[in-house]
Computed example of a mutant assay.
Amino acid sequence: MNAKIVHISDLHISPYRKSWSPEVFYRGIEQINDLRPDVVIVTGDLTDNGLVREYEEVSSLLEKIEAPVVPVPGNHDARNLGWMTFEDVFGDRYRVERVSADLYVVGLDSSEPDVDYGQLGRERQEWLEETLRRIPGGACKCIAMHHHLLPVPGAGRERNVLVDAGEMINLCIKYGVDLVLCGHRHVPFAAKVEDTVVVNAGTFSATKLRGYSRNSFNVIEFSESTVSVNLYEITTERKLELARYKPVVREGEYRLVRVKGIADILRESA
Rank of each mutant, 00 (worst) to 15 (best):
F189Y: 15
V193S: 15
K174H: 05
G121N: 03
R157L: 10
A144G: 07
A201P: 02
V152F: 05
Q125T: 06
V105W: 08
L120N: 03
H148W: 08
E126N: 00
R95K: 11
G118M: 00
M168V: 13
L179P: 10
P136Q: 05
H146D: 13
H148P: 02
E158A: 06
L128Y: 00
S100C: 05
S111F: 02
V193P: 01
G138K: 12
A144R: 10
Y117T: 11
N200T: 13
V161F: 09
G176Y: 01
Q125Y: 01
D102N: 14
C140G: 09
E167G: 15
V187D: 05
C142H: 04
L181P: 08
F189P: 03
P113R: 03
C172F: 01
V197N: 14
T196P: 08
D164N: 05
A144W: 08
A190G: 09
K192A: 15
G166C: 03
C142R: 08
V193H: 09
W127V: 11
V199M: 09
E129P: 01
L108T: 07
R134I: 04
R122P: 02
H147K: 05
T196F: 00
E126G: 00
N170S: 13
G183I: 07
L149P: 04
V161N: 15
K174L: 10
P151A: 01
T196R: 06
G118D: 04
Y117N: 09
N160M: 00
I135Y: 02
R185F: 11
G121T: 00
L120W: 00
A101R: 12
V106N: 06
L181F: 10
H148F: 14
E129S: 08
Q125F: 06
V177R: 06
V180Q: 06
I135C: 07
A201E: 06
Y117K: 01
A191E: 15
D102K: 13
A191G: 08
G166R: 07
L132N: 04
G107A: 11
T131H: 02
C140N: 11
D116A: 15
N200M: 13
R134Y: 02
H148E: 09
N160I: 00
E97F: 12
V96R: 07
Y117H: 07
S100R: 05
H146C: 10
V180G: 08
N170Y: 12
G107V: 12
L150D: 10
V115M: 02
L171M: 12
P188W: 07
V187R: 11
G137P: 04
A139S: 14
L179A: 10
Y104R: 04
S100E: 06
T131D: 00
L181M: 12
M168E: 06
L162A: 07
V163W: 14
V198L: 14
H186N: 11
K174S: 10
R133H: 01
Y175M: 05
W127L: 09
S110K: 03
R185H: 14
A139R: 06
Y175I: 00
V115Q: 02
V187I: 12
L149E: 09
Q119R: 13
N170G: 05
V177Q: 11
R185Q: 12
A155I: 01
S110F: 00
P151G: 05
Q125R: 10
L149I: 13
I143Q: 08
V115N: 04
V152T: 15
